[in-house]
Design a protein around this nucleic acid. Structure first.
Length: 587
RNA sequence: GGGGGUGUAGCUCAGUUGGUUAGAGCGCUGGCCUGUCACGCCAGAGGCCGCGGGUUCGAGUCCCGUCACUCCCGCCA
């Protein structure tokens, strides 16, 4: 007989009745009846009830066991009597009568309860992550993640993509997020950076002639955390394709993402991946990651308020503001309107105007100033009726869109308009190539500087930069940005010109992106790609509100690993070797 | 860097307008119980009420500061 087990804890059934077996696992729960003790023995595979009677020699050892101790038991598989069968367990028809019991590893009093569905505080869970991961839901989440990644690999290979590894120690890039830096021992004063994404490498793989690349790629960005953003590191399904247009990338990615969601999620997946231009998304949904489950569309009503007697708005409009209106079905009460208003103030807006429609008339201070005809015009445009309300955001375009977008989500959530059982995807397309930095007034890249501008060199030379669109796209699901991608700019001349508009001259490009720009001078295929976030996909599929729930060993919000004590001090000798001296902030 | 929330037993939480000895469930220790499966019953241990200061006859409760965790803003090509 094997030293530890003949079967796992989920394996035994009525077919094994009468067999001598050996099981190893954790004491999940113990029920001590004085004359008989039941032990639920748990491992990765399942749970088996083990029994010991007071007459058995293992009895006293069993009585003393604490939860989560690791034991090995030997005994015979017995049928449970009909009334003691447990239908909730796959092994519920049988139990093992313990003949021998060996304690492999005793457990101290636990800092968190493994056999409970109730989560402990995050700090305790992260410090004792190995205990937390024994629990049913965290264990299942990590397993789900593994299966999803496995499925993605299979699907990608099936589509003719090849998996490559790219360097983890690379060069710092001036664009984008803050880098994690690694001192270079052999080069005093110089640093490697961890890749924020394998962006340049994957493009260079295309220039190297490999045609279709993918990788489950670790990405490192030294930015602050959020519920859906883990600090430090995360994973992307990074992919790139040669000789493609935007539609080809969509055609490759859609079935993979859709397929994975359909395979693993309990919710319905809307098969229609709608395409929405960025400008339209900002207008109708006030966001570049709209939650399309909310059946509300924002309308621009600037024209109705222009020159009207509602002077606050009318004056702002003269100064260039716009008015965006959000329909509020069944929101036609003073209490709801007041709540929206104070919510908007909490968001940093001066407030949120509203009109309440009821009993054939429009009510509220806005309606009073605007007059019946114009109030009715708003009603018609928004398609609302009696008992509904309309809320207004008046501000410069991007601010108004933003507030209206948040209001739309709030109304959708509060009024229960969101179908919680649905995944609704969309592609946001035609992102602007450049945007204006509001503080400096300078033109800068709005997304990825390596994206191909729509219209190419001609657009760069002859169009107002702020009107130029890029072949740049996002994949969004239920209001979560899953992915960002682009058709790349593979033409050195167009690249130099694109950077010139953003204020970088040619030698900056030559220095900062030396490898890539030089590669593009030796025959580069037109190419493009995308990089869906793995953690976010798993989070959506697992229906978890927090990304840490789908990461094995996550860091806390301050980017500390409480289990491993990272980051940590290092020896002075190690610093000397790296030519590094600490200069700590004064406290 | 800024704003909100939370912090009470090993864990999850309750704690009234400020009032005597700070409670519950789980866990832990001891006892009883031979068919439970969140077993049941009895008893017990376990508290710097995050920390520091203040108001008060009296503070878990009110005020100020501070720390930790968390959510959000900034940040995230």
């Amino acid at each position: 007989m094997h030293v530890y087990r003949t079967h796992d804890c989920g394996a035994l059934s009525h077919a094994d009745i009468g067999k001598e077996v050996k099981l190893s696992g954790w004491v999940h729960r113990k029920r001590d009846h004085g004359g008989v003790v039941f032990i639920d023995l748990r491992d990765h595979y399942g749970l088996t009830q083990c029994v010991v009677d007071s007459t058995d020699k293992a009895f006293s050892a069993a009585e003393q066991l604490r939860n989560e101790s690791v034991i090995t038991i030997t005994g015979a598989v017995r049928a449970r009597s009909e009334e003691t069968v447990n239908k909730a367990l796959s092994t519920g028809e049988i139990e093992v009568q313990i003949a021998e019991l060996e304690l492999q590893s005793a457990a101290d009093t636990l800092p968190l309860q493994v056999n409970s569905d109730e989560d402990s505080g995050e700090e305790v869970r992260l410090r004792y992550r190995y205990l937390d991961l024994r629990r049913q839901r965290p264990h299942a989440n990590i397993l789900l993640r593994a299966k999803i990644i496995q499925s993605i690999r299979q699907r990608m290979v099936g589509l003719g993509f090849t998996e490559f590894q790219t360097p983890i120690l690379t060069a710092s890039s001036p664009e984008g997020a803050r880098d994690f830096l690694v001192p270079a021992r052999l080069h005093p004063g110089k640093f490697y950076a961890l890749p924020q994404a394998p962006q340049q490498f994957k493009q260079l793989i295309m220039v190297s002639g490999f045609d279709k690349y993918f990788q489950i790629a670790p990405c490192f960005r030294d930015e602050d955390s959020r519920a859906d953003r883990s600090p430090g590191e995360f994973y992307q399904l990074d992919l790139e394709m040669s000789f493609v247009e935007q539609a080809d990338v969509f055609a490759a990615v859609e079935p993979v993402v859709k397929g994975v969601f359909e395979e693993f999620a309990d919710k319905e997946v809307d098969p229609d991946f709608v395409h929405i231009p960025f400008d339209e998304a900002m207008l109708k949904y006030g966001s570049d990651k709209p939650d399309l489950r909310i059946p509300l569309e924002i309308c621009d009503v600037t024209d109705i308020f222009r020159g009207s007697d509602f002077s606050i708005f009318a004056k702002n409009i003269e100064k260039g503001a716009v008015v965006r209106a959000v329909p509020g079905p069944k929101c036609g009460s003073r209490a709801i309107a007041d709540r929206m208003n104070s919510w908007a103030q909490g968001e940093g807006a001066p407030g949120m105007g509203y009109i309440i429609y009821g009993e054939g008339e429009a009510r509220g201070p806005v309606a009073k100033a605007l007059g019946a005809d114009k109030s009715d015009e708003v009603k018609q445009r928004l398609g609302v009726g009696d008992g509904d309300a309309v809320f207004f955001a008046c501000a410069p375009a991007s601010e108004a869109a933003n507030l209206a977008g948040k209001a739309r989500v709030r109304i959708g959530t509060e009024q229960g308009l969101i179908d919680e059982n649905l995944f609704k995807f969309c592609w946001i397309v035609d992102f602007p190539m450049y945007e204006l930095d509001e503080k400096t007034g300078k033109i800068e890249f709005s997304h990825n500087p390596f994206s191909m501008p729509q219209g190419g060199m001609d657009a760069l030379n002859n169009q107002d930069p702020l009107t130029i669109k890029a072949w740049q796209y996002d994949l969004v699901c239920n209001g979560v940005e899953l992915s960002s991608g682009a058709i790349r700019n593979h033409l050195p001349e167009v690249m130099y010109r694109a950077f010139e508009i953003a204020g970088y001259d040619a030698n900056v490009v030559d220095e900062q992106f030396a490898g890539m720009i030089s590669a593009f001078k030796f025959g580069a295929p037109p190419h493009g790609g995308i990089a869906p976030g793995i953690d976010r996909m798993v989070m959506l599929i697992a229906d978890e509100p927090n990304i840490r729930e789908v990461i094995l060993f996550p860091m806390n919000g301050k980017a500390e690993d409480l289990m491993m004590n990272a980051p940590s001090e290092v020896d002075e000798a190690a610093l000397r070797e790296l030519h590094i001296r600490k200069q700590l902030p004064k406290s």
